[in-house]
């Protein structure tokens, strides 16, 4: 069965199957959103979310706390759908935007 994914509360959350799974104020390690090799990216809000294959990815806006760059992002993985269940990406994983050479 397909899982419903959506943003909630004006970008505060990514909801998966009507459960708030990830959201604003989280600190992600991400490549490719600023000049830092690995950005420490504070998610200030989620603007969209979609499932691409098995990957649930969210478009966000936020800021790298290493270099200070504020930016909007393309889809960044937040979790995977495995056998119909949602598995969030480990909080400390390095995330690579969907469409980059590979994903986490």
């Amino acid at each position: 069965m397909a899982l419903s994914v959506r943003t909630l509360d004006d970008g505060a959350w990514v909801s998966v199957a009507d459960e708030r799974r990830t959201g604003a104020s989280e600190l992600w390690r991400v490549t490719g959103v600023c000049g830092c090799p690995i950005a420490e990216f504070v998610v200030e809000g989620v603007t969209d979310v979609a499932v691409d294959g098995r990957t649930v990815a969210a478009e966000t806006y936020g800021r790298c706390i290493t270099c200070g760059r504020s930016t909007t992002t393309g889809p960044i993985p937040v979790g995977r759908v495995l056998e119909g269940r949602y598995e969030p990406i480990d909080r400390n994983a390095v995330r690579r935007p969907v469409g980059a050479s590979s994903t986490v």
């Binding site: 505060a12 604003a24 104020s25």
Partner: peptide, 8 residues
């Protein structure tokens, strides 16, 4: 953050 979803 006491109650709000958006606050950092």
């Amino acid at each position: 953050t006491e109650f709000c979803s958006l606050s950092i």
